[in-house]
Simulated assay, not measured.
Amino acid sequence: MKHVELQLTADGSHTLFNAEINETYHNPKGAIAEARYIFIHAGMDAMLERTNSLSILEVGFGTGLNALLTMLRFREFFKLQHVRIRYVTIEPYPLSREMIESLNYKSLLPEGSAERFFDALHDAPWDTDVEVLPWFVLHKRTGKLEDYQAAENSVNLIYFDAFAPSKQAEVWARDNLQKCHQLLQTDGMLVSYCASGQFKRDLKAVGFSATPYPGALGTREMTRAFKKQKPD
């Protein structure tokens, strides 16, 4: 991809800077730390308290960091209980292999499987199901959320990790949030680093119960939004 360059964040992990839109892929204070807090701690871990079967939709595959951390956490849980995960991730602009290989996540993550998992994620072909681990199915989908089609009530956790609304407003449009609401099962959850007032108002307008949650790395808030059962 043109106009993308490597940058080091404060926790020592890499992010990418997209000069075309003047935006980084992760928080400059720490790519790994931010992703672990928002998507694993506040998202995956919270849902695994309720169910051992997760169907995850990620909006924005990017560097693959969220997927990698999800796989590592999956292996931790799998040793304790039988967990199943289906992980669908949408990315309109996949990174080049050269850019992927320049990222330092494999050397920074202490888990012994990080290198193997990271390679498996990026070696997996696009637009097809791949069982990258027993009971962990990955489907990398090229394209935009606007064009994504799937059965209603087929997902119970959404990682909404697109570029900020000020940079990529079309992804955060109310129609896309309505689609996310339709895809989610009752009591399913959407998690995002974004906590803007407009984002939360739009989530509520399409039927979510949007709740503030303490943010990562000094930010005041992030967002967790739930699809609640309709009252009789």
Rank of each mutant, 00 (worst) to 15 (best):
V155N: 00
L133K: 03
R73L: 05
F61V: 04
N153V: 02
Q229S: 10
Q229M: 11
D175M: 07
V4D: 09
Q178F: 10
V88W: 05
T24S: 15
P134M: 11
S13N: 09
A151R: 13
E5R: 15
L190K: 01
D232H: 13
P212A: 08
A210L: 06
G62K: 02
F39V: 00
E221R: 03
F78A: 14
V88L: 09
P28L: 07
G218A: 06
L145A: 04
A150I: 05
G207M: 04
E20T: 10
M47K: 05
S192P: 03
G188K: 00
D127C: 06
W135H: 15
P125W: 08
A42E: 15
M189K: 05
L109W: 05
F163C: 09
G188T: 04
Y25R: 04
A33C: 10
D129Q: 14
N18E: 10
N66Q: 13
K79D: 14
R86I: 04
S13A: 10
H26G: 11
V191E: 00
L6T: 08
E76A: 15
T9G: 10
D45V: 12
K79N: 14
L121E: 04
H26Q: 12
H82Y: 04
G112P: 08
R220K: 15
K29H: 14
I158Y: 00
H122G: 12
L121H: 02
G188I: 03
T9C: 13
K29C: 07
I40D: 00
A150Q: 07
Y159H: 01
S192R: 01
